[in-house]
Nucleic acid binder design. Sequence first.
DNA 1: AATGAATGAGCCTTCATTCAT
DNA 2: GATGAATGAAGGCTCATTCAT
Lengths: 200, 200, 200, 200
Amino acid sequence: MPKKKGTHSKTGQRRSDIIQAALFCFDEYGFNETTIEDIRKRSNASSGSIYHHFKSKDQLGAAVYLEGIKHYQSGMLENMEKHNTPKGLIESMVGYYFQWMKDNAAWARYLMQMRQEAFMEITENSIASANKQFIECLAGLFSPKIKAGKLRKLPLEIYLSLILGPCECYGRFWLDKVTDADIRLATKEIIESAWSALKM
Amino acid sequence: MPKKKGTHSKTGQRRSDIIQAALFCFDEYGFNETTIEDIRKRSNASSGSIYHHFKSKDQLGAAVYLEGIKHYQSGMLENMEKHNTPKGLIESMVGYYFQWMKDNAAWARYLMQMRQEAFMEITENSIASANKQFIECLAGLFSPKIKAGKLRKLPLEIYLSLILGPCECYGRFWLDKVTDADIRLATKEIIESAWSALKM
Amino acid sequence: MPKKKGTHSKTGQRRSDIIQAALFCFDEYGFNETTIEDIRKRSNASSGSIYHHFKSKDQLGAAVYLEGIKHYQSGMLENMEKHNTPKGLIESMVGYYFQWMKDNAAWARYLMQMRQEAFMEITENSIASANKQFIECLAGLFSPKIKAGKLRKLPLEIYLSLILGPCECYGRFWLDKVTDADIRLATKEIIESAWSALKM
Amino acid sequence: MPKKKGTHSKTGQRRSDIIQAALFCFDEYGFNETTIEDIRKRSNASSGSIYHHFKSKDQLGAAVYLEGIKHYQSGMLENMEKHNTPKGLIESMVGYYFQWMKDNAAWARYLMQMRQEAFMEITENSIASANKQFIECLAGLFSPKIKAGKLRKLPLEIYLSLILGPCECYGRFWLDKVTDADIRLATKEIIESAWSALKM
DNA sequence: AATGAATGAGCCTTCATTCAT
DNA sequence: GATGAATGAAGGCTCATTCAT
C-alpha cells in the first residue's frame, strides 16, 4: 500500500493547506525569503504537489493575496450594507477594518506588505479587477448619500484616505506591537475625524 | 588589470554615487529584483568597490533607507519648528509630507515599500533609533500645545494616524498614478480633518 | 528544461559518483583548487545535485575523507585480526599500510594532505569518532600481548610512531615518486625496526 | 608631517613583521583561509606594503616556508656535526627534531601542513634546492660511517623514514595535544629503535 | 494527484592584486 | 617605502522549477 498523505480529492484540502502554510511563511519570513521548501515542510506537501496546484511561487503568492483581499473586501461591503446610513458607512468601515485586522493579523500584514508587488501582472488582473469592483461598490454605497446631500461631494480617494488611511496607520502600530494600542479609542477618534470631515 | 575611474579619497563621492544608483534601481526594479550588477552599471563602480563601502546588499539597502528617513524626518521637524503653532504643526506636517513626496518620489516609494523589511536587525538599530528620535521630537513639539490646552490629550499614535495616515494613503494613490490626484485639495481636506479632530 | 541523466533513487549511485569525482579532483588539483564545476563535469551531475547530496563543498570534502579513513582503518583492523600474534600485528600493519597505499594512492594522498583541515568541526566529529574507535581497536589488539609479556609496555602513541611513522614517511617518498622506492625493502626494515624496539 | 608606521629602511623590520604575522595567521587559520587582510591587520602594514615586499600571497607563503626549513635544517645539521659519531648522528637528529618543534611549534605545524603545496614551482626551486642540499649534507654525514662499516648500507630514504618518521608521527600527537606526550620517553625509544635497525 | 531527486541559471560575495597618491 | 580605495575574475551556493515514477 503506497503512502498517502491525505484523502480527499474533492475538498481541495491540500490546496487549502498549502495556502495556509504559505501565508504563515510569508508572514513569518517575508515573501522573498520564503522558499518552496519552507512551504513544503509546513504543509506536508511535496514540492511537486505545490506545483501541481499552483503554476509558480508568484502564482501562489498571488492566490494567497487574492484570497485575503476577497475575504477582507467582501466582509467590509457586507458590513456596510447592514449599516447603510451616512455615518453608519463610516463607522462600519473603521469598525470592520480593525476587527478584520485583529482576526486575521497574518493576512493583514501580508496584504500591507505585498501591495506593491507585481502580482497584478501575473494574476491576469484578478487582483486588479477585485480592487476595481471593490472601489465601485464603495462608490455605489457613498454616492446616494452624496446626492442626497448627506455627505460632501469629494473624490473617492479623499474618502478612502480620510477613513482608511488612519486605520492603516494605527493598524500598523498595533500589528508591530509598537504600542499597546487602544483600538477602541482609535476607532472612535478615527470615526469622529472622518465624520466631521465628510459630513455635510 | 584594474582600470581607475577617478579618485576622490575624501569626498565620499563614490559612496554617494552608489547610494543614488541603488535607490534608482530599487525603485525601478524592486529591492530583490535589483542585482549588484545593476547597481554597478549605473554607478560606474566595480562590484568590489560596492562591497568596499557596504558590507552586503542588505546593508546597502539599509543605508539607502536610513539616508531617506533621515532626510525626510529632519526636514519635517525643521519645517514644523518654523510653524510652531497648534494648527501650524498640523499644516506643516501635511504640507511637508506631500512636498517631500513630490520632490523625492523614488525615495518615498522606497521608504513605503521597505518599511517591513528586516533592516532593523542589520543596521544595529540605526533605523530604529532614528525613528525613535523622530517620534520623541514630534512628542516634544505637540506636548506643550496639549499642556497649554490648545490640543486634545491623545496618544501620539492617534495624532500620527490622523495626520499622516491619510497622507500616506493619498500619497500612494498619487505615486501609483492611480489618480490624477489633486494634492492641493487633499492637503486642505486632511488638514481640516485632523485639525477638527485634534483641536480643543 | 532539465535533462535527466539517469535515475537511481535507491542505489545512491549519484552520491557515490560524486565522491569518486571529488576524490579524483581533490587529488589532481588540491582541495582548494578544485571547483564544484570540476566535480560536476567529472561526475556528470549538476551542481544542484551535488548540493542535494552534500550541504557544502567542505561537507563533501569531509565525506570523502571519512569514506577514506573508514576504508583504510577497517581494512587494517581486519588484516591484523587475521595475524593476531605479537609480530604478526606489526607485520600486518606495515604490510597493509603499503598495500593500501598502493591500491588507493589518490585516497592516501588525500588523507595525508587533509589531516589538518578543519573537517572535524564540520562533520560533527564523525571523523574524530572514527579515529577514536580505531585507536581503541588497536589498543584492544596490542593490550593482550603486552599483558602476556610478549610486547613491551609503552604508550600507544609510541607504538604508532614506531610502526606507522616510518611507513608514512616512506610512503610519502613513494607517492611523490621522489624515489624509485623499494617498498619490499622498506617493509622489511620497518618491521624489523619496530619489532626489535617493541618486543620484550 | 605624514604618518609613519615605523622607521627603519635597512633593518627589514617591516618584512620580518609581515612574515611573523603571516606565520601566525597561517598557523591559526590555515594558509588558504588566511586573507591578506588578516595579515595586514596583524602586521600593521598596508596591503600595498605587503605586496611591496612579496610578489604574491604564494610568494609570501613560500618565504615563510623557506625561512622555516632553513632554520630547521641548518640547525639540525649544525647539531649533527657536533655529535659526529654513528649513534650521535641519530641521537642529535631525534633530539634536535623535538627540541626545534617545541621551540617553534607554529612553524613546525606550518611546515608539516604545507609540505604538499605547490610552492616549489613558485619559488623557482628555492625550496627544492634547500631540500636537496639538506639531503646531500645528511648523506655526507652518514656516508663515512657506512663506508667505515659502522652503519648499515641502506638507501637514505630508509634512514630518514626510520629516524624522522617516528619523530613526525609523535610530534603530531604532541602538537595536536592529543596526548600529554612524554617527549623524553619518545626520544629515547625512537633513538633506540633507529639505532638497533641501522647499526651494523 | 503526489513525490522528490535532479536541474542549471543566476547572484552575492570574496579576495588577491593594482596603482595613483 | 607606504597607503588603501578600487578592481573584477571567479566560485560557492540557492532555489524555483521540472519530470520520471
